[in-house]
Amino acid sequence: MGLDLEYLYRTFLLALGGLPVTLGICVATLSLSLPLGFLLALVGMYRVRVLGALASLYVSFARGTPIVLQILVVYSLLPSLANAIAVNAGWNIDVFALNPAWYAIIVFTFNTTAVLAEIMRSALLTVDKGQLEAALASGLSVWQAYRRIIVPQALLVALPNLCNATINLIKGTSLAFLMAVRDVTAIAKIEAARAYDYVESYLAIFVIYLIVCGITQMLFSTVERRLGIYRAPAVSF
């Protein structure tokens, strides 16, 4: 069939222009979802009554429905909702002129927070109770014990799953075009429709996603190796 390699290369460069948007959404989402997910994991673990039930309902919904539906629901709800709020509050801002990337960040945070909450909950459960007791007996407060002993250990256990979640997030942002965000996929899609060159366009971003996800995996395994030195198996005494 003959691939138009030159066109492929041009689209590749063009789509790379959307990478800052793709990565920006990912970074913003992760910086919101990590603390939120952690809080949610604690709520789930300590069975805070009403809050716990609400939290598990949210986690179940966010993890049990397709992300594309979450995008479509939020995108058909949020702009008009935000507008109503802005009008009622008398703010002089045009909600509809807002960069759609904000909506993307909201949707992906909604989704990723639930995923991370599950990951962190199960990671926290792997930390031996004795670690907390030893920290308390050493005179650390509960907060200090979590910050210095429990969380670092849980984080290490969670890293492979966090890597998965990050990669799923990067892949998930490929649907941001549904919200008119001009990310990597959106640019390729526009190019494909313009030039009727679907195969080359999608091959170009296929390569981009491979590179981005590949680098992400490498980063995670480097961090895991660095942080995991203490886990090195006992060789001999």
């Binding site: 892949k171 490929s174 195969v199 091959l203 996603y209």
Partner: peptide, 14 residues
């Protein structure tokens, strides 16, 4: 490392 939608388009068009 491949987004579903990218592979879906690749298969459908390619």
């Amino acid at each position: 490392c491949t987004p579903s939608i990218v592979l879906l388009f690749l298969v459908y068009y390619g």
